[in-house]
């Protein structure tokens, strides 16, 4: 699974690769950790929006965008702070790499949130027409 997520995070289109940093992330199985966290957090936020907040007053784009924003912030912040803490503890010193990978993670969170919405919204009674 670490290989799978590594391919995702390091691809040439929207991924990020920096020799040294990316290898350490891979060796520490952090791609797997952040990938699983990404999928779980997106699913959880979508379940909260489409099932727990399944009420007419939340059937507005602004609430969906808020949930998306929260998901993005969670994944961005978690990757940055967690990876920095782990690699610093191991004695590595990187600079802008943490933020770059956090951006990639945030971007994936947004894309995944949108794609999963298209499926999960069908389970909702009141929010099924959000985002469209």
């Amino acid at each position: 699974m670490n290989d799978l997520f590594a391919a995702l995070y390091e691809n040439n289109f929207i991924g990020f690769y920096s020799s040294g940093f990316s290898e350490e992330i891979f060796d520490e199985y952090l791609y797997q950790k952040y990938g699983v966290t990404l999928v779980i957090s997106v699913s959880l936020l979508l379940c909260i929006y489409y099932k727990i907040m399944d009420k007419p007053r939340f059937a507005k784009l602004k609430y969906w965008v808020s949930a998306l924003f929260i998901t993005v912030i969670i994944n961005f912040t978690f990757l940055w702070t967690n990876s920095e803490a782990i690699l610093n503890a191991k004695g590595f010193s990187f600079d802008g790499e943490y933020m770059s990978l956090a951006f990639v993670n945030a971007l994936y969170a947004a894309i995944l949130f949108f794609l999963f919405s298209l499926v999960i919204k069908r389970l909702s009674v009141n929010n099924s027409k959000i985002p469209f």
Binding site: K55, P56, R57, V125, N126, S128
Partner: peptide, 15 residues
């Protein structure tokens, strides 16, 4: 529940 007032009817219309 769906909310209050008209939201309750909207919820039941959707449901």
């Amino acid at each position: 529940k769906s909310g209050d007032s008209y939201d309750i009817i909207t919820g039941n219309l959707n449901s």
